[in-house]
Write a protein that binds this DNA or RNA. Structure first.
Lengths: 109, 109
DNA sequence: CCAACTATTCAGTGTTGCCAAGTACCGGTA
DNA sequence: TACCGGTACTTGGCAACACTGAATAGTTGG
């Protein structure tokens, strides 16, 4: 989607990934593929891995190394209590932002 | 709103300001005040000015220096044709993002 | 004259996502 | 066996953006 989307993703991509993890545990390669399927065609692989390491460092997820049948071991991430709290906060902030922008968008016509 | 909002604003703040400018010309100080009124309480002054200089450099706005009755001259920004096009693109990207997040939000309950 | 408000600029910082390359493990095929 | 493609993760360097804090400057009122 281009450079515009890149900047817009900053801050939201983290929420997106945490939201995915809130429905089920997952690992990096899986998440990347999932996102590509849903239209986030050009999200760089490295981005997701870096993001996962970051949220782990922030203590929002727990990690478990699981052997794979078809490659190196997977790092499976699971949202923990702190992560859920953070995700709630994310949705609140997101809601605030969408409200403002919705008003602006309507005002603009 | 804290650090979360700061990151989420990246990329969208530009759209917000351009959306404001699409309804009428305005200058930095005015825009900052307007945003503060609408709940963007802690947007730094310097941020808006830097953003305005950026969009000017990108050729999305035209500028006119207008004397003020109560202070130094104002730099009044006006959205031009390229700016409108860019704003359209912004709304498309924003729409895409809100759609995905809405789905995720619903899926998360 | 100085304090307060109006109005803009600028240098330095941290966070984020992107890019590109590299490592490593596995199965199938020539 | 040797190689290739798919799986899976890591890393270093880069650019863009918003924030911080301080500086500059014009105007009005006490």
């Amino acid at each position: 989607m281009g450079k515009l989307a890149t900047e817009m993703l900053k801050g939201t991509l983290e929420g997106i990934v945490l939201a995915i993890l809130s429905t089920r545990p997952a690992y990096g390669y899986e998440i990347t593929a999932w996102l590509r399927d849903r239209g986030f065609a050009d999200i760089a692989e490295g981005t997701i891995y870096a993001l996962l390491i970051r949220v782990e460092r922030h203590g929002l997820v727990d990690v478990e190394k699981v052997p794979s049948e078809k490659g190196p071991p997977r790092k499976v991430y699971r949202l923990n209590a702190d992560g859920r709290e953070y995700l709630d906060e994310f949705w609140r902030t997101w809601g605030f932002l969408t409200d403002r922008l919705e008003q602006l968008r309507e005002g603009g016509r």
